[in-house]
Design a protein around this nucleic acid. Structure first.
Lengths: 345, 345
DNA sequence: ATGAAAGCGCTAACAT
DNA sequence: ATGTTAGCGCTTTCAT
């Protein structure tokens, strides 16, 4: 069926090992024979079977990537980084969508384990114990989760949260809602800690609402609760949620940022997609994907922990203010205005 | 390193063939021995090496998916459908992002060919000849492209375009811009044909602008051109582009849909993400992904073309009107008002 | 019902 | 520089 190395060997009148070498160690074979081999291979349309190769070398040239939800722009940006970098280093990616389900996460890693050189786990929701069990199975690099000793690419969500809250405080906000996402999200925890610390330091009161699904719908749902609590600003788990909030606020006739300021965490692309002023904490998702692949491959080259080679990569975040965010109006601090804005209709 | 079938065999004190059978043909092995084998396997954490299995069976249990751009919600929705369906039928997906580059498309299919049972090509931009060359390599199913004899999942973009244009005409629009996307897009051609036909039938004039990149930025860029041509409505290649248009219109102070109506083609999720009234032609992307996987697997079961089993699946589209889209104002038909709206600032 | 052995396509010693 | 051979982990005849 498929054209094998044997056929190329026959066609070029050499042994299979020569063909193999012509591809994998070109220096070790006579220039003339190599040319011939490559030419015959080309004519026959030969492509080495990477699975068979992996069987003997122990290296598949594949890397697995597991995301909680491909359709979430947050993760598709990550995925983009992974696939792009993987291609550059001649690897192929195995993708699994865990559907935000911790059990599925563990399951798919198991299924991929044997046919990949390692796995990049994006914001895994699974429990630490499960994670630890998987570690024995295959090399793993985490994105946005810090687990004892595991190589990871981390984003400074806590600092992002601080930046956002200080910004809001500077604008005069004294009561802001923090919409939380999946309880098992490490980044979510970081943000919560960052928010709490900044709130304490900056003399602003925060109202923690949630958990909400990290989706557009989650934001819609959260908006009503936030409104009812009379806040003047909202800090959403991610931009998808933030956009949902904006949408719902608009539907209820609340003006942004006149009545309420909205801020989300995300990669810039998403937040650019609304015409409402949406301040964003930029998370370098694509860079994180690329970094994770590099970390994985670095680790593969050196099975033994080496000195001087970092197993963690820490990525900063950046606050993007997209509007002349207006401070809350006089007397709004207690939330009355915002509340009134909708009670009135 | 990894736990192999031999170790399980040793542990359960049976031969490797028995272990193999216990997994792949459970009926053929004594219930007691099978239980024992399965238990030992469980204890050892044995997972069959699917690559090795594929080497002998010829079936890898993997399917390849190639998309022009994972970060485009249009395609990530497709991808979601593919991964979800693949998991249901116990397959794993190999993902490649072609970066909107036809050459990369062909290249990655080649790279995956040997380790997948077939490939789903989403809206491939590559030339027909390249496509035909690939067909010999591995089973292929196309999404949103109709190529002689190849199994495909098609969406009725032309009809969607007709629905959109009729809707605009019914609202009184007489001059609408059609923003085109990648020239090599089959769906784009369909839409163009649909738009032209409907325009001729419905007595509305269309201004074809483009090609633009099928991105948010593409829309920003297109908006200025559309405005300059004095249209009262815009039909964008996809929602991403449409949202870019909205954003730019807002920046230039043009009101939507007061001055201009905007319509895009896309899966509903994306279009829900703006607070502006954005009419959308809903493309069932996720369903298409699922259907493509099914088609691929069906075809695999029957290497010979069978009667009664469709090789094509045709998915309808649906117009989603999200607003009380206002008709153009008096005297606006020639586009003066819209144009004036920005000349004034 | 179970085992022994051949071999899938490839690479890596080990010859020569 | 090139050929020979022994597997990689698995399934699948073919025996028993």
């Amino acid at each position: 069926m498929a054209v094998t190395i044997h056929e190329v060997a026959k066609g070029a009148d050499v042994s299979v090992s020569t063909v193999s070498r012509a591809f994998t160690m070109p220096e070790m074979v006579n220039a003339a024979t190599r040319r011939k081999v490559l030419q015959v291979a080309e004519e026959l349309g030969y492509q080495p079977n990477r699975a068979a190769r992996g069987l003997v070398t122990g290296k598949t040239g594949n890397i697995g990537v597991v995301v909680p939800d491909v359709a979430n722009p947050f993760f598709s940006a990550m995925l983009k980084g992974c696939t792009a970098r993987a291609r550059e280093v001649r690897h192929v990616v195995f993708l699994a969508d865990a559907a935000e389900d911790p059990r599925v996460e563990a399951e798919v890693v198991g299924a991929m384990a044997k046919q990949v050189d390692g796995v990049v786990l994006c914001s895994p929701r699974m429990q630490s114990e499960h994670l630890e069990r998987l570690v024995g199975t295959t090399p793993i690099v985490l994105i946005n989760r810090d687990e004892a000793g595991l190589p990871a690419v981390l984003m400074d969500s806590a600092d992002g949260a601080r930046q956002a809250l200080e910004h809001l405080a500077a604008l005069g906000h004294r009561r802001v809602a923090h919409l939380t996402g999946p309880p098992a999200s490490w980044a979510g925890e970081q943000r919560r800690d960052g928010v709490r610390a900044a709130a304490a330091a900056g003399d602003v009161e925060t109202v923690e609402l949630g958990p909400f699904p990290p989706t557009f719908q989650g934001g819609v749902q959260a908006a009503d609760l936030a409104l009812a609590r009379g806040v003047t600003a909202v800090l959403a788990f991610n931009d998808l949620m933030a956009v949902g909030v904006l949408n719902r606020l608009a539907a209820r006739g609340v003006s942004v940022p006149g009545d309420i300021s909205v801020t989300g965490f995300d990669d810039i692309e998403m937040s650019a997609m609304t015409t409402e002023p949406l301040t964003t904490v930029r998370m370098p998702m694509e860079a994180a994907g690329r970094a994770a692949v590099d970390l994985l491959l670095d680790g593969l080259d050196a099975p033994e922990p080496r000195d001087g080679v970092p197993t963690h990569r820490w990525l900063g975040t950046q606050l993007i203010v997209r509007s002349t965010t207006a401070p809350p109006r006089e007397g709004t601090t207690d939330g009355d205005t915002a509340t009134r804005a909708l009670v009135g209709r």
